[in-house]
Design a protein around this nucleic acid. Structure first.
Lengths: 172, 172
DNA sequence: CCGCTACAGTTATACTATATAACTAATTTG
DNA sequence: CAAATTAGTTATATAGTATAACTGTAGCGG
C-alpha cells in the first residue's frame, strides 16, 4: 500500500485538543482532574504527541516560515524531480485543489518550479530551482536537529524505531 | 506536569498531510516515490497515524455527530462534575474563547448544563444532565469499540501500552 | 476524424479548528 | 474603595481541509 492510499470521509474529524498556553498568567492553582479513559486513549495521546512534535517543528522553522506541508513538498520534489503536481499531492494526501496554493507559495519564493510537460501539456512537472536545492540542504539540517530532539525525548533511535513501527500499524 | 501544561506558540503548525481519497477514480498507475526521511520522520508518521485514528473515531460517532472535543468534554464533566468551564477547557488545552461554542453545542443538545456558582457568580459550573449521563454511557460503549479496533491494529494491549508510554515522552 | 470520456490543474467557496483581542460582570487585593 | 484579576463571552482572523465546477488537453471507440 502506498503512502497516499488512505480512506477518506466527507468531513473533518479534528482535534481532541491543542496545547494550551504557558499559563495565561495563572494563580498557580490547578483543579485535580480525573481524565478517565482519556489518559490512555490512543487517539488522544497520539494527538497530543503529534501537536508537541509539530510545535517543535514550527519553532524550528519559524524563521523560514516553512510549514510541515511545505517541508514535505520540497523534500519530495528534491528526491523525485519531474513528478507531476498531482502525484506529489496524492503522495502527501493533499487534495490537488489545495495543493495549488502550496505550490504557488513555493514557486513565489523561487524554491520550486512548474515545468509544462512537452508530451502532455496538461501536466505541470515539479522541480527544485537552484535556490530550492540550496534551501533544501539547509532545511534538512534544520529538520535533522528537530528530529534529533524528538528522538532524544523518545529515549534513543531504538525507541524511535519502535514508535514508527507501532504507529505504522495504525495507518495500514 | 498536568495534562494541560503545554507550551504554546502564536501560530498554527499544522499538517504534513491528510489522508487522500479512496482513489478519486484512478487509472491504477502509481508513480514510485522516494519519500526520503519522511518515511521515518516522527512527526510525519505520528500525524498520519493520528489522522487514521481520528478517521475511525469520526466514523464511529458519525451518527451522533460527536467530535473528539465533544467526547472529551462529556467524559471530563461526567468524571468531574462541577468543574468550572475554564478548568475543563484548560484541562483539554482548549482556549476558553473557543470552548464557549463547544459548551453551547452540548448544552443545546441537553447533554451538559451550566450552573452559575452561588459562591462566585462569574463561574459556570458544568454538569451532565440526566440525558447527558445516559448519553455518556452509550458514548463510552461506542468509544470502547473504537479503541478496541485501534488496540487490535497495534497488536494487543501490550503494544498499546508501549505506544502510550512512548508518545507520552514527547509531551513531557 | 469526431465525439465522448477521462485527466491535470485551477478557481471559488464553505466549514472546522484555532488564535487573539476586547469587552462585561464579578471578585480580590493593596 | 480603587485597581487589578478572573470567568465567561463576543467578534474576528487565519490555516487546513473538502467539494464542486470550470478550462484545457489527451485518448479512445466508432
Amino acid at each position: 500500500m502506498g503512502h497516499g492510499d488512505f480512506l477518506q470521509l466527507a468531513q473533518n474529524y479534528v482535534i481532541f485538543a491543542k496545547p494550551s498556553g504557558p499559563k495565561p498568567s495563572g494563580n498557580g492553582r490547578h483543579a485535580i482532574i480525573n481524565y478517565s479513559v482519556l489518559s490512555e486513549a490512543v487517539g488522544y495521546r497520539l494527538r497530543r504527541a503529534q501537536l508537541a512534535v509539530f510545535q517543535d517543528f514550527g519553532e524550528s522553522f519559524a524563521a523560514e516560515g516553512l510549514r510541515p506541508a511545505d517541508f514535505s513538498v520540497v523534500l519530495l520534489v528534491k528526491h523525485n524531480p519531474g513528478l507531476k503536481q498531482s502525484e506529489v499531492a496524492e503522495a502527501l494526501g493533499i487534495q490537488r485543489a489545495n495543493f495549488v496554493a502550496i505550490v504557488d507559495g513555493l514557486e513565489g519564493r523561487d524554491l520550486v518550479e512548474r515545468r509544462k510537460s512537452e508530451t502532455d501539456r496538461r501536466v505541470q512537472a515539479l522541480h527544485l530551482t537552484p535556490l530550492g536545492e540550496q534551501f533544501a540542504e539547509n532545511m534538512l539540517t534544520t529538520w535533522q536537529a528537530h528530529e534529533d530532539r524528538m528522538v532524544e525525548k523518545l529515549g534513543g533511535p531504538e525507541a524511535r524505531d519502535e514508535l514508527i513501527r507501532l504507529v505504522n500499524r495504525l495507518t495500514e
